[in-house]
Design a binder for these strands. Structure first.
Length: 883
RNA sequence: AGGCACGUAGCUCAGUGGGAGAGCACCACCUUGACACGGUGGGGGUCGGCGGUUCAAUCCCGCCCGUGCCUACCA
């Protein structure tokens, strides 16, 4: 605002709509922003001027819910604020489309299954499966066909997300769109593997691994969860050489009895000390196994003595390794008991014939069925030559215990020895913790999630998956003369060769004819854990090794927004990657949103079926209304879906629209902000700007919104605007200057408030901004206008009395509170106050108050007592005169 | 079982070492010229409980209760 008086042309009220039509404004402005490139990142500007967002690529598995809007709006609010602070914002959007959720969606959508052995069908066109079709067995299609369908489905899903994001007003730079399955992501993921390989951080090994028997793939520790599951303790008698019934073990997995490779108890357990060093004989199968002491055995659990099987749980694996026990793998990759032959070297038995007879009852069964089967055998070993009593002691005792599941799986995980690739992390806990501490977490207590997970990490990161839709591991294995792979001398694709598909491409030094031939090579068919790729999102944005100069400008990122339940996966792996690749942190700030809870305070999730679709909410309450609800929640705190808050947000947008209309339709010779009341208002406004800016600096957008909103309603519309009305309408002699000062302050107030609201309600603020300020300031969009600050208040004198505004507000409040018939006494009371208050301030307010008192006629107040008036006035003003 | 967070009006939530707040809902009143998608006024709370520190505690400390989440828990 200039200091000279100038004429401001009022907007013609006739030219403005009566009501804010949010829906058309949303479509119109979204189109404008896209066509004008309002949110474009400028690669020419320096790192210091740039604000880099490591946007979460949403998992594109089909269904959108309001939780998506919630957390992404938090990010967008921060981003919009940074942009107005003058930052060159890098705000990409990615789609996490590779991996199991997509595969599962494709399987359901088309009712198909991938069969890697099937032949490719060129031009295969499938329609979404009908209910009728679903009753038939799923159609088997080739891996390339399956991947084609994955791409087709993700394309549809991505379009749906994009429509939502744009409607919700996310200020994403859509030229920076990517997918975790696209060419660049695949390239970078394979480069990442190559880099880790060169640095010695990855290895492959054939070892018992957590295995999902339905998906038939290995999974990582981070993807496991414990679920309370009903089970039962089976008490089973074991023999020892020379004694048929020497001791009783307790187990919840009797079906693994044929896989028993040892027996152990605590070394101090007097009940069993005499047994150590002897051979136990398993019942039914009569397999001799060593009895050894172990500190890990808990005398309190079960009977204190237990069988070690390959493999019932992680402790079994440890005993198996430490004691050098035999491997008797029973559960196959499909979760069924594999055929084995007792009496062989691997499965010795004192009575092989009986053992095989028993096992014939179990072979081919799933784990659960086998458990029932063996329980029956243990209870009644019909045909037992010895005629001995049943090995099962009593009836199984039902218990509920924690069982490990794949988070997306339906059956318990099994430990199955398979060859897998791992990233070595267990020896880097200290470095991982140090990097985690360098990141600033918002809210800070979220760091505890990261710390706890890192400290308790048990396994290296298993990164290979036996699935289809993902990034292939860029490796081959040389085949020896017998055609056996040499895993110790893996052929990793050269950097220049990447990206590759080892099932199609050929390693350096070989030609295609040598594929799967003795002396030739075999291509790896595994793909990466999807986190292996998505842990590179900062590098996918920066292009990393593909464009080192760009990388320097975009890495590390400024913020990583994400949900708290994936701190152990996404945040953890991203930090790990940045550490291993560049000894860096991936971002400076981790910004953690809470969850959306349903009205019963349950987490919204697809499986529970309590999700809300966002589009209808946006249509009912407008995008600005939905954003208001999102932004009202602090970071990290879970929030109930409450339509009342949406409604309030819509109401705020309406009020902004109407207040804007009023202010901008006032014409005047605009004078500098000159009068005491106006200067007092500006001082308040200035304090608000400081407050809101400080809140944003603290990543507390909710506080910034609350402060701005409260100021807007109570100070701006309810008080200042009402006080100003009387002055802008004053046609009396000498009123022009006062009117000018008032209009100048009104316009300044509107301009500042619009900008403070812009990150939260981008549509209505843009709409009002466009009426006059866009042209006056030369900033065509409010979203690139400068964040309010000292420049807005330059040349405006502070008020003579810092409390003037409050006095005026109190007087106005008092006038509203009491009634016109008290006007005479008001005058007296004010005079009384003036003695103690600032006489000069009051003198300036007097004309205003006189106007007010003259103008106010409130019939409702007429019933009020004179005493109430006095009490009311003193009540309001009393704190000011308190000792 | 450990860790973290939360517990404030009927609901959703702010907030602070010194007067207990907002919005919605409810009640009464007002079609005033930006706005009835509005305005004015009102009722309603031992700030989860018990101790402690302090002149003073809803706020700081301890214990307990309740809720949610994260870890751990397959003999």
């Amino acid at each position: 605002m200039g200091t000279d008086a100038k004429s401001v042309r009022a907007i013609d009220p006739q030219g403005l709509p009566k009501h804010f039509d949010a829906e058309s404004a949303e479509k119109r402005w979204d189109g404008e922003w896209q066509s004008r490139g309002t949110y474009r990142y400028d690669p020419a500007r320096s790192r210091e001027e740039t604000f880099v967002v490591d946007t979460p690529p949403p998992t594109v598995s089909g269904s959108l819910h309001i939780g998506h809007v919630f957390s992404y709006v938090h990010t967008d609010v921060l981003v919009r604020h940074q942009r107005m602070r003058g930052k060159n914002v890098f705000y990409p959007m990615g789609w996490d489309d590779n991996g199991l959720p997509t595969e599962r969606r494709v399987q359901n959508y088309f009712h198909v299954r991938c069969d890697p052995r099937a032949a490719y069908e060129a031009g295969l066109e499938l329609e979404p499966a009908t209910a009728k079709l679903r009753k038939k067995p799923a159609r088997l299609i080739s891996r390339p066909n399956f991947i084609e369908l994955c791409h087709r489905v993700t394309q549809m899903d991505e379009n749906a997300f994009k429509e939502l994001w744009r409607r919700a007003g996310l200020s994403v730079d859509w030229s920076l769109e990517y997918a975790t399955i696209d060419q660049r992501s695949r390239h970078l993921a394979q480069l990442s593997f190559r880099d880790l390989f060169e640095k010695g951080h990855v290895y492959n090994s054939d070892a018992p691994t957590m295995w999902d028997v339905d998906y038939q793939t290995a999974i990582a520790q981070a993807e496991m969860e414990d679920r309370p599951t009903p089970g039962a303790f089976y008490r089973i008698e074991f023999g020892v050489d020379g004694s048929e019934r020497a001791f009783t073990i307790a187990t919840t997995r009797p079906e693994l009895l044929p896989a028993c490779v040892g027996v152990t108890a605590h070394p101090q357990d007097d009940r069993y000390r005499a047994l150590f060093g002897k051979q136990a004989i398993t019942p039914l199968f009569r397999v001799p196994v060593p009895i050894f002491p172990s500190e890990l055995a808990d005398p309190e659990k079960g009977s204190g003595i237990l069988m070690v099987c390959t493999f019932g749980d992680a402790t079994d694996v440890q005993w198996w390794r430490d004691e050098g026990l035999a491997l008797r793998q029973l559960v196959g990759r499909n979760g069924r008991l594999s055929p084995v032959s007792f009496g062989s070297e691997a499965f010795p038995s004192r009575d092989a014939e009986a053992a095989n007879r028993y096992y014939a009852e179990l072979v081919g069964k799933g784990v659960a069925a086998a458990r029932q089967g063996i329980a029956q055998l243990l209870r009644d070993p019909a045909g037992s030559a010895s005629g001995a009593a049943a090995p099962l002691q009593g009836e199984p005792e039902p218990i509920e215990h924690a069982v490990k599941f794949y988070e997306r799986g339906e059956r318990p995980l099994e430990l199955v020895p398979t060859r897998q690739w791992f990233v070595r992390l267990l020896d880097k806990k200290a470095e991982l913790l140090a990097k985690g501490e360098q990141v600033r977490w918002h809210p800070p207590f979220m760091f505890a999630r990261y710390r706890d997970w890192t400290e308790n990490l048990q396994l290296d990161w298993c990164i290979s998956r036996q699935r289809y839709f993902g990034v292939p591991l860029p490796v081959w294995y040389p085949l020896d003369r017998e055609g056996n792979p040499d895993y110790a001398n893996t052929l990793v694709a050269e950097r220049e060769q990447l990206p590759v598909d080892p099932t199609l491409d050929v390693p350096k030094g070989y030609d295609a004819s040598q594929r799967d031939q003795p002396g030739g090579f075999a291509g790896e068919s595994d793909i990466f854990d999807t986190w292996f790729t998505s842990s590179l999102t900062p590098q996918i944005g920066s292009h990393w090794l593909l464009d080192p100069e760009r990388h320097r400008k975009l890495f590390p990122a400024d913020i990583r927004p994400q949900a708290h339940e994936i701190i152990r996966t996404w945040a953890f792996y991203t930090i790990a990657k940045a550490l291993l690749h560049e000894n860096s942190i991936p971002w400076k700030h981790a910004v953690i949103s809470g969850w959306v809870l349903d009205p019963e305070r349950k987490k919204m999730s697809k499986s529970v079926g309590n999700t809300s679709t966002p589009m209808p909410l946006i249509e009912r309450y407008t995008a600005d209304g939905a954003r208001y609800w999102s932004a009202s929640a602090r970071l990290g705190s879970d929030t109930a879906l409450d339509e009342k808050v949406f409604k309030n947000g819509k109401r705020l947008a309406t009020k902004i629209f109407n207040a804007g209309k009023f202010v901008l339709t006032q014409s005047a010779q605009v004078h500098p902000v000159r009068d005491e009341l106006d200067r007092a208002f500006v001082a308040k406004l200035r304090a608000l700007v400081e407050r809101a800016t400080g809140s944003f600096d603290d990543f507390n957008h909710a506080q910034a919104l609350a402060a701005t909103e409260s100021f807007f309603w109570s100070h701006f519309t309810d008080t200042y605007l009402e006080l100003a009305k009387l002055r802008v309408r004053d046609d009396g002699p000498g009123a022009a200057a006062g009117r000018g000062s008032a209009v100048a302050a009104l316009r300044l107030g509107l301009s500042v408030l619009l900008r403070l609201f812009a990150p939260f309600q981008p549509y209505v603020t843009e709409e009002v901004w466009s009426w006059a300020f866009a042209q006056e300031t030369g900033e065509p969009t409010i979203h690139r206008a400068p964040w309010p600050g000292e420049a807005d208040f330059a040349g405006i004198e502070p008020p003579a009395d810092p409390d003037s505004f409050d006095v005026a507000a109190a007087c106005y409040g008092a006038v509203n509170k009491c009634k016109a018939d008290a006007a005479m006494s008001m005058g007296r009371e004010l005079e009384h106050m003036a003695v103690a208050a600032n006489r000069a301030t009051l003198a300036k307010l007097e004309p205003v108050l006189a106007d007010l008192l003259g103008a106010t006629r409130c019939r409702a107040c007429e019933r009020r007592e004179r005493a109430d008036l006095e009490d009311g006035v003193f009540e309001i003003l009393d704190p000011r005169f308190a000792p």
